[in-house]
């Protein structure tokens, strides 16, 4: 088994990444150690984010929420600022893995795994989140949707560390909805998931719709067509059924051991039907 290094500052960590042979950044390890056990990854050394100052922080500014890469999922989902302004993310994290995994796993780890089934990703896409990468030459920023390039693939360059994700607080009155369909209720890997943000006007029509699906393509799927279709319409059953048809055209699912492509396509559209409730005046937020 390889050694684990515990740098205490970001600079020290970047320095270690530059100087060591085949390093792997360890941020919780709930995915990485599974891959190591399966022989899919053979790091020469682990560089842990665990003791880096500030690496686990969750910060709130006037307009933004900032989550550092090493913040454990359980802390993120329980954080008042996330509950108030990023409920869609909190809802997703609440059904990610198990309590043990949520205690160990981090947001940075979940983003870096870049799995189409990564539960934090659809909410981050829907929130239009950006990531900040730290490297020897300083920081660079980009939208999370540009950072994720394919299954297991990101824009992270060798020697860089994913340092944080941040998003602008959604306007007051925005509804947050996340639903994951797995093979069982808890401790499940998503077969299809949907993150939705939308703001109903007093007359029931929606302005500002943002949708993102997990596990229905090589990366998270967004559908501007579906969003545009829904804009300025009330979320009635008929409207949502129409949106569902557009969503089914937008997704690019595959069949694997968990689900068929047909199931994923069908459910990707069906999940929009859940958004009907708030149009009847109920507030659709789980927290």
């Amino acid at each position: 088994m390889a050694d684990v290094l515990f740098p205490v500052s970001l600079d020290q960590a970047l320095d270690l990444l530059a100087k060591t042979e085949a390093p792997a950044v360890l941020a919780g390890g709930t995915d990485l150690l599974v891959q190591v056990r399966q022989g899919k990854k053979t790091p020469g050394i682990f560089v842990s984010l665990d003791r880096i100052e500030g690496a686990q922080e969750i910060l709130e500014t006037e307009t933004e929420i900032i989550i550092r890469a090493g913040a454990p999922l359980a802390r993120i989902m329980a954080h008042p600022a996330i509950r108030d302004h990023g409920s869609v993310l909190a809802q997703a994290l609440a059904v990610l893995g198990s309590p043990q995994i949520r205690n160990m796993g981090t947001l940075g780890g979940n983003i870096m795994t870049a799995s189409p089934a990564g539960d934090s990703l659809p909410p981050l896409y829907a929130l239009d989140a950006r990531v900040q990468l730290a490297g020897p030459e300083g920081f660079r920023r980009m939208p999370v949707r540009d950072f994720i390039q394919g299954p297991g693939k990101t824009a992270l360059a060798p020697g860089e560390i994913l340092w944080q994700a941040n998003f602008t607080k959604p306007a007051p009155g925005t509804c947050h909805w996340f639903e994951k369909v797995g093979q069982r209720t808890a401790l499940s890997i998503s077969m299809v998931s949907l993150a939705a943000l939308f703001r109903p006007d007093p007359d029931g029509r929606v302005s500002k719709v943002s949708l993102a699906w997990g596990s229905v393509g090589p990366t998270i799927v967004e559908s501007p067509e579906t969003e545009t279709f829904l804009l300025n319409k009330p979320l009635t059953r008929e409207v949502l059924a129409g949106a569902g048809d557009l969503a089914r055209q937008a997704v690019r699912p595959i069949s694997d051991i968990r689900a068929t492509a047909d199931f994923r396509r069908q459910v990707a559209g069906n999940l929009l039907m859940r958004l009907e409730t708030p149009a009847k005046g109920k507030r659709l937020t789980r927290y």
Partner: peptide, 16 residues
Amino acid sequence: TLTRDLSTYIIPGALD
């Protein structure tokens, strides 16, 4: 075997 471990061979949990 296609379901080679407990991530693909699904047993019910307490919530199921």
